[in-house]
Amino acid sequence: MNDQPIILRAGALEAALSPAAGGSLRWLSYDGVDLLRRAPDGSADPLAMASFPLVPYANRIAHGRFPFDGKNCQLRRNFGDHPHSIHGVGWQTKWTAKETYADSVKLVQIHDVNDDWLWPFRAEQCVTLKSSHMSMSLSLTNVGDTPMPAGLGFHPYLLADAATHLQFDAKSLWLSTPDMLPDREVSADSLGDWSHPAPVLGDGLIDNVYGGWGGSATVLRGDGLRLTLCATGADWLHVFRPPDGTDFCLEPVSHMPDAINRPGGMAILAPGETMQLSMAIEIDRTLPKSAGIA
């Protein structure tokens, strides 16, 4: 892969990004301990990374089709034989590093009109490390002369073992169809009660979005580290927990899957308008092992 990682450091915290691999985060470690899933050496696959940006929409658009501004729009299906378009453009396209410092970087992507997205945009992703947290911001600007639908998100993979517990507050959960589109809204505890710390691993698939998310989620690791993921501009949290896995995803997003085909829809950016979403992961290493776990 002709993509030299950009390595950032602040105190014991280290991160690496690959601009050519969808602007993805390759790893995030604290004092040599991985906090997110580490990308394999030499991999250029965003789906193998620690995290990747979701722009200009998050999750799925059913069959890549939707009505907008009086037209029937069709996007390319961009995930093999999967029936829906997924995760936007940013994760499958090269970004360019514009500002690089020892502890921060700004990546930029300019999109022209094509079958992946029918409107031009400029996206910026800024990553900054402090001694005890990483912050990431993602912005999307409509650089065209007509309105466009817009959405943002991040897709981090957190590590988990049998002792890892998860806690967050939400008002509801959407159950999914077999092809992973939202089907019906149910109570937030229908697939597990995360309102109190509970084991995150399990033998069933969770690939569902939570509405009315409080904007924060806490991960209590078996090694005594506590991670707090918080976000602004994200009213929804998509949780991906594969069965019997070693990692899981907490995806702060601005809209639910297939929102563009549903009441409420997605945000609409006027020409020249910008929207932004930010995420931070805070690290607390002062906890004794298994602290706070019921």
Rank of each mutant, 00 (worst) to 15 (best):
N2Q: 13
N2M: 09
N2P: 15
Q4R: 14
R9W: 01
L17Y: 12
A21W: 13
A21C: 14
L25G: 01
R26G: 00
W27H: 15
L28W: 04
S29H: 11
Y30H: 15
D31F: 03
G32W: 07
G32Y: 02
G32M: 06
V33P: 00
D34H: 13
L36C: 11
R38E: 14
D41L: 11
S43W: 10
P46E: 13
A48E: 15
M49P: 00
M49L: 10
A50H: 07
L54V: 08
F66D: 03
D69C: 09
K71H: 13
K71Y: 12
C73K: 07
N78A: 01
F79E: 13
G80M: 11
D81L: 11
H82I: 04
H82S: 04
V89W: 10
W91S: 06
T93N: 14
A97K: 08
K98I: 08
T100F: 00
T100S: 09
Y101D: 07
A102P: 05
V105F: 01
L107Q: 08
V108L: 12
H111N: 04
W117F: 15
P120W: 06
F121L: 06
F121I: 10
Q125A: 13
C126W: 07
V127A: 05
L129R: 05
K130N: 09
S132K: 12
S132G: 01
H133L: 14
H133Q: 12
M134V: 15
S135N: 01
V143Q: 13
V143C: 10
D145T: 14
T146R: 14
M148Y: 06
M148W: 02
A150D: 10
L152E: 13
G153I: 09
F154L: 15
P156Y: 04
D161E: 14
A162G: 02
T164A: 12
K171C: 03
S176I: 12
T177R: 11
E185F: 00
A188N: 06
D189V: 07
S190V: 02
H196M: 11
P199M: 07
P199E: 02
V200H: 00
D203P: 09
G204C: 07
L205R: 12
L205N: 06
I206T: 15
Y210P: 05
G212M: 10
W213P: 01
G214E: 13
G215W: 04
A217E: 05
V219T: 09
D223N: 15
D223H: 05
D223F: 07
G224P: 11
L225A: 02
L227F: 07
L229F: 01
A231Q: 03
T232I: 00
T232M: 06
A234H: 07
L237T: 11
V239G: 05
D244A: 13
G245C: 11
G245W: 04
F248H: 12
C249G: 05
L250T: 08
L250G: 10
V253D: 05
V253H: 03
H255I: 01
I260L: 06
N261C: 10
P263D: 13
G265A: 12
A267P: 03
T274M: 09
Q276F: 00
Q276R: 15
L277R: 02
I281R: 06
I283V: 15
I283C: 07
L287R: 12
G292L: 14
